[in-house]
Design a protein around this nucleic acid. Structure first.
Lengths: 400, 400
DNA sequence: GACCTTTCTTAAATTTTTCATTAAAGGCTT
DNA sequence: AAGCCTTTAATGAAAAATTTAAGAAAGGTC
């Protein structure tokens, strides 16, 4: 759909190969940052004069900009080139349970505008309200290159349909389909947890790692899986559903209809539930001083301030999560586990407990080189991950 | 180590690219079978005259043979080319718990010789005995191109060390290291379950599938994972350890030291144990007629012949396995599950129960397009899979 | 300022693609 | 059944693109 003189050539073999080389250069600059002609030539397996010629093309078309000479130990200083961040904007719909964010971001992670819209994902008029807002924003801003939708739940790869949050679909069509048709801009779907993992992979803790798990510990439990540097999607796009793995054969009934799911013992909801139950039983806790109904952040804050009752609640959730994660560790053998989602605010209280639990439930070869860490990027990971996802899809789109 | 005039060229850019094209052609012929010049040109993204010239080289060096003209609907009939199966032999050590097989196989899955050697993997002199046999076989047969070792247990990718069966290592070095040094032939390790999955992927049920699980239901429980057409190895090579995932928090003690592992309720050992226990309790079963100690194959045979007691044992194992598998299904969202290992002999008795169990424990989007099937290739899958693995490693080796 | 190291440019050498032509096969028509 | 037409495959020479290799440019060090 989006035309670009550089990529809209005839389909001769030479043109095909040149397009492939262009995308290789752009991918390299996008993912590995700025580079010199000599370095690119080595990476792309192409001669220096060819790279030079292609960089001229890319510069003329505004894809690439010169960054001046870099310092080196000896010899002539190479001129560095970088992707032109301002060349394209990507419009991101960051869909959450209780609010949806609209973000315009450019190729170099610079956020142009961010609008927050409070709306419940289960709202009857969700799609209508969102469409209105998108309409408005696309009128005011420059037309984006592509649109990315990051949403929770089971998103089917082929159709884009969300199987968990049905209000995101309309008459058997996905929100992505609707937007794509309306604005003639490519739209891509990604599950929110996977987007965060991709963000961490490109800009955060998983930068040089190839086998990583990211747990999204929120009102539910999602898992993002990085295998050999690629995100695991599964046959239909549903991979990483850790929340409904059975942990207790005779546990509580989960709202999915099954029994003893991980979500029933390890999620934000569990924490609030347990805190309320304890207060009703008049347990000794700093939380008794709170007047209104107890919220998650209050429990976490109390725990961080040393309230034993709250700490115990978080410990228990950490233990259960660790137990669930140890299954994933046995199946994937990751080198790092990143903890993300609201509960990452509990910091080391949760990390140390998860570690302990993994040590208990995993066979020893699996835990010798295993790190458990808190996501450092926070919410940005999701936005930047979605952006990277969209960029890569657009590059595929160009070469095919 | 192994020299080949076609691949031992100088390292100019043109040579590098040519080597890459050679391996692309060979890979295509190896994996997708024979092909025509026109088809190869399309696949490899290279012009017809270039492919023609390269095929001449490959033929002169014995890598490729002409297969004559193929039938087509209309137009001139294309000449087909195929990989020359006889060009290279691969020597495979198929390591099992109670016997090790030595197999010479060529590139087209033709088995040249197969020697079976009865030895316990825990035997004190395992390595010495095996070395003697390998020595003998390598003297008698033509020197192979490469060696592949398929073995059960946790095999570390970087070192080749087997963490489950320590008799396979010697003074901190792996069997692969020892052989490689001694014979100056490249040696590659692969876990047995993954080898079977690779075999099924290339020649069996997973041929056109990209997301597949293969359970090796044997004395233990192994899992092979195919993600997007590639085998999941994990950070250290330990991925797919389904046997020691906890199924029952207050179950039996497993020999790994943990409690309620899947292996304690779903494996060949469980079946024998249950059969014996039932016989001691004088349950009504056709097995009472057996004089000697009950073996696995007798229980399976009795079940197939309709013995209710034996059927119930198998059903129970199938149910537990299905429960364990449903965790893997939630994490990977596969399109097919292949059942392999000794217990596949129970046929539909086990398949139908596993299916039932998955239906019970999995969320519905995960099971709508999910097949559960018995491995059709049997033991050959492992050998052919190891061979494919070795071939691909050797091709990587040539281009780098 | 001579010398070393690495980057970058230029023109010749080489390789690869393109395109026109020939080859081969099968079906249809008369 | 011979001849014509359509379709696809393969070849070879001209054209185009890419690499190679030599040297210029740029910076640093002794």
């Amino acid at each position: 759909m989006p035309t670009d003189p550089l990529f809209d050539s005839q389909q001769s073999l030479v043109d095909q190969k040149k397009k492939l080389s262009y995308t290789k250069i752009l991918n390299h600059l996008f993912n590995q940052g700025s580079s010199s002609i000599a370095k690119l030539a080595k990476e792309i397996h192409t001669s220096v004069p060819s790279i030079t010629a292609m960089l001229v093309d890319l510069q003329q078309n505004g894809w690439v900009i010169e960054k001046g000479a870099a310092k080196t130990k000896s010899g002539r200083r190479p001129v560095f080139y970088d992707i032109n961040g301002a060349k394209k904007n990507i419009f991101i719909l960051d869909v959450n349970l209780y609010q949806t964010n609209f973000i315009f971001v450019n190729l170099r992670n610079e956020i142009i505008t961010k609008t927050t819209f409070d709306i419940d994902l289960e709202d009857e008029h969700y799609l209508k309200e969102i469409s209105k807002e998108v309409d408005q924003l696309l009128k005011v801003n420059d037309l984006p290159w592509a649109i990315g939708i990051s949403a929770p739940g089971l998103v089917e790869t082929s159709s884009g349909l969300n199987h968990s949050h049905l209000k995101l679909n309309k008459d058997g069509k996905s929100l992505a389909d609707v937007l794509e048709k309306k604005y003639s801009i490519p739209v891509f779907n990604i599950n929110d947890t996977r987007a965060s993992l991709l963000g961490e992979h490109h800009y955060g803790l998983a930068k040089s790692k190839k086998n990583v798990l990211l747990v999204n510990l929120d009102w539910g439990v999602g898992l993002g899986i990085l295998h050999n540097g690629t995100i695991v999607e599964g046959a239909s796009g549903f991979a990483g559903e850790l929340g409904h793995v059975q942990i207790y054969p005779d546990g509580e009934l989960c709202n999915c209809g099954k029994i003893g799911c991980l979500e029933t013992v390890a999620s934000a909801s569990t924490i609030v539930k347990k805190a309320k139950r304890g207060l009703n039983n008049n347990q000794a806790t700093a939380l008794s001083n709170v007047d209104s109904e107890i919220t998650l952040s209050e429990v976490i804050a109390a725990a961080i301030n040393g309230d034993e009752f709250s700490i115990d609640i978080i410990y228990e959730v950490g233990r259960e999560l660790g137990k669930g994660l140890s299954m994933a560790v046995h199946l994937f053998n990751p080198e790092t586990i990143i903890i993300d989602g609201i509960l990452k605010n509990a910091g080391d209280l949760i990390v140390s407990t998860v570690k302990q639990s993994i040590n208990k439930y995993c066979l020893s070869p699996f835990k010798t080189n295993l790190d458990v860490v808190i996501s450092p990027l926070g919410d940005d990971a999701k936005v930047f991950g979605t952006k990277s996802f969209v960029f890569n899809k657009m590059m595929e789109y160009y070469v095919n």
